[in-house]
Amino acid sequence: MPARPWQASPAQRIRRRLAERAIETMLLLAALVAVFTTAAIVAMLVWESVVFFRSVPLLDFLTDTQWTPLFDDAHFGILALLSGTLTTTIVALMVAVPLGTILAIYLSEFAPFRVREVAKPFLELLGGIPTIVYGYFALFFVTPLLQRIYPELPGFNMLSAGLVMGIMIIPYVSSLSEDAMRAVPMSMREASYAMGATRLQTALFVVTPAALSGLA
Rank of each mutant, 00 (worst) to 15 (best):
L200G: 10
L123H: 08
S192V: 11
G127R: 10
G155W: 12
L18A: 15
I170Y: 09
R17T: 15
F156T: 01
T101A: 04
E109L: 08
S83H: 02
P57F: 05
S175Y: 10
L215T: 13
P151S: 05
N157E: 09
R114C: 02
G155F: 12
L176F: 00
I167R: 06
Y150W: 15
V164D: 09
A210N: 11
S108N: 03
L146I: 12
T63C: 01
E48R: 14
V207W: 06
P112F: 08
G166S: 09
V46N: 07
V42Q: 09
Q66D: 05
F205H: 13
Y106S: 06
Q7P: 03
V51E: 14
L82C: 04
T63W: 07
R199S: 13
A197T: 00
D64G: 06
S49T: 14
R54C: 01
G128L: 07
L27W: 10
Y150E: 14
Q12A: 15
V91Q: 06
Q147A: 04
L79C: 04
L29A: 15
R4E: 15
L27V: 12
I167Y: 05
A161N: 07
F71N: 09
A210Y: 03
F141L: 15
P154D: 07
I102L: 15
D64W: 06
A34H: 03
S160T: 05
M165R: 01
G127Q: 09
Q12V: 14
T208V: 10
V33G: 05
Y172T: 14
A211R: 04
R116E: 03
A34D: 08
F36W: 11
V118F: 11
I170M: 04
S213R: 05
R16P: 01
L176K: 04
I170P: 04
S83W: 11
L139Y: 12
I14Y: 04
P171G: 07
E20A: 15
S9P: 01
M168H: 04
S55Y: 09
A203G: 12
A104R: 05
R182P: 02
G100D: 08
P5F: 05
L107Y: 08
P69H: 09
V133K: 03
V97T: 08
Q7W: 00
A74H: 12
M44W: 03
L45F: 04
A34F: 05
A138K: 07
F205D: 02
F52A: 01
T202Y: 09
L176N: 05
P144Y: 08
T65P: 02
L215P: 03
A183L: 13
L125S: 12
V142R: 05
A19Y: 00
L123M: 15
V118N: 00
A40Q: 06
L139V: 09
P130R: 08
M26Q: 14
M44V: 13
M165G: 13
L139Q: 07
I90S: 02
L59S: 15
Y134K: 01
F137M: 08
R189G: 00
I14Q: 13
Q147W: 04
T25L: 14
T63I: 10
R16T: 12
P154Y: 07
D179W: 02
D179K: 13
L59Q: 13
E124T: 02
F110D: 00
G196S: 09
S192F: 06
F61Q: 01
T38R: 05
S83K: 14
